[in-house]
């Protein structure tokens, strides 16, 4: 990495930090746009429901199938419900859902704000005596922070349902047994840790998306570049930070 690139990234990190500070201040002070928040929750959260359900369900099916046959060799099929549910809740559901949201919502937010920026609509918000931070950023970030943990939990739940079905069909494992094993393996800390992680990922996705939206220049070309930048940066940051967050959560709850 060249020195120029390093400096550029340092500036971006600084600006993101300041933006996050402004977001925190704007989130707890008036005026607050409840209507816009609900609008964004519906758009970001409800709009992502179907794909989240499908991904969670299919992941559960596949994991149960693979672990089932893999562990059968060692007589370990009984451990499938525990392994699958813990993996889903702690790692796979938060990561898959966050990466999905980074692609679907992160790019959407940056394109929307970016287009508003290049057509001077962001300037118009300022010129009309209002704050783009409050009008555009706070509702989108809060909607992401509220929606993503719920979506990931739903995804994990659907994965467990998928696991129950495939375990019954492929390995003749009674559904009640599977559910009991899942309940025995999972703890509240797993759910809590998963939601905490997802909240952190939601901040990363929405903060990067809003930041890049405001920085968008050069018309439609700039909007396209902004969306790519957000998806790439958010995905990498999510994957790297997931390792450290998992380590911290294991230290706290294991």
């Amino acid at each position: 990495m060249t020195i120029t690139k390093f400096k550029e990234n340092l500036v971006i990190t600084g600006e993101l930090t300041l933006m996050f500070r402004d977001f925190l201040v704007a989130s707890v002070t008036k005026p607050f746009y409840w209507g816009r928040l609900f609008e964004q929750i519906i758009h970001l959260g409800i709009g992502s429901l179907s794909i989240t359900v499908v991904i969670g369900f299919v992941t559960g099916l596949l994991m149960t199938l693979q672990f089932g046959y893999g562990l059968a060799t060692f007589g370990g099929t009984l451990y499938v419900p525990g392994i699958v549910s813990v993996s889903l809740l702690r790692e796979l559901a938060p990561i898959f859902t966050s990466l999905l949201i980074a692609g679907r919502i992160g790019s959407g937010i940056s394109a929307e704000i970016g287009a508003m920026n290049v057509t001077q609509q962001v300037d118009a918000i300022r010129a009309l005596g209002t704050s783009p931070m409050r009008v555009l950023v706070v509702p989108r970030m809060l909607a992401a922070i509220i929606s993503l943990p719920l979506l990931a939990t739903l995804s994990a739940f659907m994965g467990i349902i998928g696991g129950i079905i495939i375990a019954y069909l492929e390995f003749n494992m009674p559904m009640g047994f599977y559910v009991n094993k899942v309940l025995a393996f999972l703890h509240f800390s797993d759910v809590f840790g998963s939601m905490l992680k997802c909240s952190f990922f939601a901040v990363i996705i929405s903060l990067l998306a809003c930041y890049k939206g405001f920085k968008t220049t050069e018309g439609t070309k700039g909007v396209g570049e902004a969306t790519t930048w957000v998806v790439v940066r958010a995905s990498i940051t999510i994957l790297i930070s997931d390792f450290f967050l998992s380590k911290i959560l294991l230290l706290l709850f294991a």
Partner: peptide, 23 residues
């Protein structure tokens, strides 16, 4: 500051070249 300018901007109004309407 930006926040202190909000009331000023209600008194000095800007009409953009493109209109800059919320689309």
């Amino acid at each position: 500051t930006e926040t202190e300018l909000f009331p000023v901007r209600t008194k000095i109004s800007y009409s953009f070249q493109s209109g800059a309407l919320f689309d």
